[in-house]
Every structure is written in structure tokens, then in C-alpha cells.
């Protein structure tokens, strides 16, 4: 499977760090970063999740000229069960996420992202009906073909929205 090209950029790292409420200078201040053990700006631990930005077909991003299931004139822009992921009456939620760091990405890296499916399993949930879990393994390799981060995500589709008690 051809991987998406994920250029790691300093501005994206700065904005990502802000979005997870992390004001550590190593994520935006090059002069400060030079004085640290690492010696340069690095990406926060969960930054590679933003490779979704570089997946041209990512299903949770509105695309020009295509229906979008979020609200506009109406509470949803698509007919029932036309929307992908997290749509009406339950849908997809993120259950687990695991990272193994071979090193931490830095500005200038150009990562190649390859995704392969893992296991699938089912469970009966008290608060949301039948749960279907599916695993995805994502490898992020750098411009030299070296593995940088290995990620394993588990998504769950629920029969109905999770009860809030």
C-alpha cells in the first residue's frame, strides 16, 4: 500500500502543541530548543495523529462538492446512514491508542504513513449495546526509510449512543 507523505513542519507542531494545551517551549522556540538535551524542536507525543491532514481521503474532513454530515441549514447534511463514522444513533468512537517511539519527529522530517488493519472483535456493552472493535496499525517512516513511530489504534462502533446515566 502506498503511504501518505506527511511533512513535519514547525508551524504545525506549534499549533498542535497549543491545541493540546501544552506550552512547552521545545515545541515552538528554536533558540530554547537548542539549549535542551534534545537540541532541536521536536513534536509532542501524540503529534503523528495529525497525519490525517495529509490523507487526501480522510473521512472526517469535509471535502469540496461532497455532502458533509455536520449541521448547516439542517442538523445534518446527509440522509440517515449516509454519513461515515460517528453518525446518528451511535457510530464510531476511539477506544484505545498506543505509540511506540523509535525517535521523536522533528521539523524537516518527511514521514511516510502506512496503515494496515489489525484484529477485529466484539463485546456486549452495558451502556451502548453491541460493541465492535477494530484495530489499525500505522507505521511512520522517515526520509531514510527508518521507523520513527509505530501506532496501534482501536476504534469501536456502538449499537447506540453511550448512556450518560
Amino acid at each position: 500500500m502506498a503511504g501518505d507523505r506527511f511533512p513535519v513542519e514547525a508551524t504545525h507542531i506549534m499549533m498542535f502543541a497549543r491545541s493540546v494545551a501544552d506550552d512547552n517551549q521545545i515545541y515552538y522556540d528554536e533558540d530554547y530548543a537548542k539549549t535542551t538535551e534534545v537540541g532541536h524542536i521536536i513534536a509532542p507525543p501524540t503529534f503523528v495523529q495529525s497525519s490525517a491532514q495529509f490523507n487526501p481521503n480522510y473521512f472526517l474532513r469535509p471535502k469540496v462538492g461532497q455532502p458533509w454530515f455536520g449541521s448547516g441549514k439542517e442538523p445534518t447534511g446527509v440522509k440517515r446512514d449516509a454519513g461515515g463514522g460517528g453518525g446518528g444513533g451511535g457510530g464510531g468512537l476511539h477506544a484505545e491508542q498506543h505509540y511506540e517511539y523509535h525517535r521523536h519527529p522533528k521539523p524537516g522530517d518527511v514521514l511516510t504513513v502506512t496503515v494496515r488493519p489489525g484484529k477485529t472483535w466484539e463485546k456486549e456493552g452495558k451502556r451502548s449495546g453491541k460493541l465492535v472493535f477494530s484495530e489499525t496499525i500505522t507505521e511512520y517512516r522517515d526520509q531514510n526509510g527508518e521507523l520513527v513511530v509505530t501506532a496501534r489504534g482501536v476504534g469501536v462502533r456502538t449499537e447506540r449512543p453511550v448512556d450518560q446515566k
Binding site: M15, Q53, G88
Partner: peptide
């Protein structure tokens, strides 16, 4: 920043009226 624009996280109308949260 992440690129996850799932309306469940930012669209109150969709999330309450359609998704049921």
C-alpha cells in the same frame, strides 16, 4: 490541528439532535 473534524466534537446541533449526545 489534528484534522479530525468529526462534528461530534465541535457541532452542538448535530451532536445533540442527530447523534443523541
Amino acid at each position: 490541528t489534528s484534522g479530525d473534524y468529526n462534528p461530534l466534537h465541535t457541532d452542538e446541533i448535530f451532536t445533540t439532535k442527530v447523534a443523541g449526545y
